[in-house]
């Protein structure tokens, strides 16, 4: 029972990781909170759903939805972030304008779905169960764990080893210095937004499959979870976000199983508050980074 809960927690934690990575990437590069990330996630699930019921093969639908959410994220950057970023001191204005984008996307989704809960048609994904050392694991759970592991490895490789990745890290460290050395900061921003959007879209599809429900408000709880993940892992830290996501997934499924159900949120956000107090830079964040102290 305990190990089964831990396994389930790891699966939902790995989806949290997929969702939070984009969020933490944008924060790491731009130092801005993107409140529209939850809506991008929801859009991913919606687009995949409508592609599937209009007869597209499921894999193609997923690919199309990742592409589309990537483009949505780029649009978010162009509409809500770019002007504010160029004006400087964009921390608070960007939070507000991304909330604006969130309202627009959620409202459109509400109209499109007529406020109903949607389900992927039966048989979209084969339902199979395996016994693994006495644990029950579904094919979907195995696929999710594998896909997330591959994507995370690819993202880390991209950030560490490629020229693009080096440019991203250069802009994250110091935008002006990077620009002086010939890095096109705007294109770096667009890239990070595209990656973040595509990952969020995929996370939306996976969650839609895992719980077999898609609805226009599904982004909000994940948005709030992402805050917990990025704070515990350290805002802007990729490895921290992954560890924190898995930790959150396991904590949550254990709390649901063994504690009064209503208390789960209080525990999770209490934990967030505690981490902010004791280690504002997160458990794995750069200790030298500025979280407290005087604003820049």
């Amino acid at each position: 029972m305990l190990s089964q809960q831990i396994l389930n927690g790891l699966v939902s934690g790995s989806v949290y990781a997929l969702f939070s990575l984009g969020f933490t990437l944008i924060f790491g590069v731009q130092k801005l909170l993107n409140f529209a990330h939850g809506a991008t996630f929801m859009a991913g699930a919606f687009i995949a759903y409508y592609c599937t019921i209009s007869g597209l093969p499921f894999l193609l639908a997923i690919g199309f939805s990742m592409l589309a959410t990537g483009l949505i994220a780029i649009l978010i950057d162009l509409i809500a972030f770019r002007t504010l970023r160029n004006r400087g001191n964009a921390e608070f204005p960007a939070l507000v304008s991304s909330i604006g984008v969130d309202l627009i996307l959620v409202s459109i989704a509400q109209q499109v779905s007529k406020t109903q809960v949607l389900n992927f048609p039966f048989g979209t994904f084969p339902i199979k169960f395996y016994d693994l050392f006495g644990l029950r694991i579904s094919l979907l759970q195995i696929v999710i764990l594998a896909v997330v592991a591959v994507l995370v490895a690819a993202l880390i490789f991209y950030l560490r080893k490629t020229t693009f990745g080096r440019q991203v890290r250069a802009v994250a460290t110091n935008e002006r210095a990077a620009a002086l050395l010939g890095v096109n900061a705007q294109s770096v921003y667009l890239q990070t937004f595209f990656i973040a959007g595509a990952l969020a879209g995929l996370a939306g599809v996976l969650i839609g499959l895992l719980f077999n429900s898609i609805q226009f408000l599904m982004g909000e709880p994940y948005m709030l979870r992402a805050f917990v993940v990025v704070v515990i892992g350290g805002l802007g830290s990729v490895q921290g976000a992954i560890v924190a996501s898995l930790l959150l997934g396991v904590t949550q499924s254990l709390a649901v199983a063994y504690l009064p159900s209503g208390l789960t949120d209080a525990i999770i956000f209490g934990l967030l508050f505690l981490v902010l107090l004791v280690r504002p830079n997160g458990l794995f964040g750069d200790i030298n980074a500025v979280a407290g102290g005087t604003r820049q």
């Binding site: 909170l33 608070f92 709030l224 805050f227 508050f273 902010l276």
Partner: peptide, 21 residues
Amino acid sequence: RLRGAFQAIATLAFVQIILSL
């Protein structure tokens, strides 16, 4: 001890704690 985005997140967590209680 916190500034900027971190304050926003912490106060958001405060609201969530109140609501879930």
